[in-house]
């Protein structure tokens, strides 16, 4: 699955320019599902990026573990989900020093949460590289109940917490790592536009 190309949007919508090797500098790498291919491509460009890298992989049904493990990262771990990888990832950030590069590859939901975590830990945004691979499902925050609905692929969608029908905005909060969902039928309850698949 190649790198996803998104159509141009408003300035608050994140863009994922792709991973570029920064050489054998300290690195934290977080890959999810087909994001593994982005790390493999990165290492193919410059194998030395793995020398000081701490690589965490969340397979999410995409089995690239053996190939990633073979890249020779300084440390390699797999975790069944982002939530289960979180403490390990936080520890890696807490131990990191300035000059560390963070490589993130996978879905928007994972990248958004991981970026928010890294920024809170003090990593400068310019030290974060991102590449989108795999599902274009979005992580949506309901502006009304503040609940987050993961893996949203349709617009409008039902908030999994408060049940309101929300439309999918491109407005994105880096701090929350989520897009904004707003009630689509607030003015005319029950009158909801036809459901569409989200496009990149």
């Amino acid at each position: 699955m190649p790198r996803t190309e998104f159509s141009p949007s408003i300035t608050s919508r994140p863009v994922y320019p792709g991973l570029t090797p920064q050489g054998a500098t300290p690195a934290i790498m977080l890959a999810e599902g087909p994001g593994a291919e982005a790390i493999l491509d990165l290492a193919a460009l410059d194998a030395s990026v793995m020398d000081l890298a701490h690589l965490i992989y969340i397979p999410a049904g995409h089995d690239a573990g053996l190939r990633l493990a073979a890249l020779g990262a300084k440390m390699y771990r797999e975790a069944p989900s982002y939530a289960s990888a979180l403490e390990r990832y936080r520890k890696a950030l807490a131990d990191a020093r300035m000059g560390t590069t963070l490589y993130l590859a996978g879905s928007e939901g994972m990248i958004g949460q991981a970026v928010a975590e890294a920024l809170a830990a003090g990593l400068p945004p310019e030290a974060i590289q991102t590449e989108h691979r795999g599902t274009i499902a979005r992580r949506m925050q309901c502006v009304h109940c503040k609940g987050v609905t993961e893996n949203v692929t349709i617009d409008p969608f039902l908030c999994s917490h408060c049940g309101l029908t929300l439309f999918v905005r491109d407005h994105f909060s880096r701090r929350l790592g989520a897009f904004q969902g707003v009630c689509v039928d607030a003015e005319t309850p029950g009158i909801v536009p036809e459901v569409q698949e989200i496009k990149p």
């Binding site: 300035m98 000059g99 400068p124 310019e126």
Partner: peptide
């Protein structure tokens, strides 16, 4: 050389 972004 040590990987610091310019912004900091």
């Amino acid at each position: 050389r040590l990987g610091w972004p310019k912004t900091v």
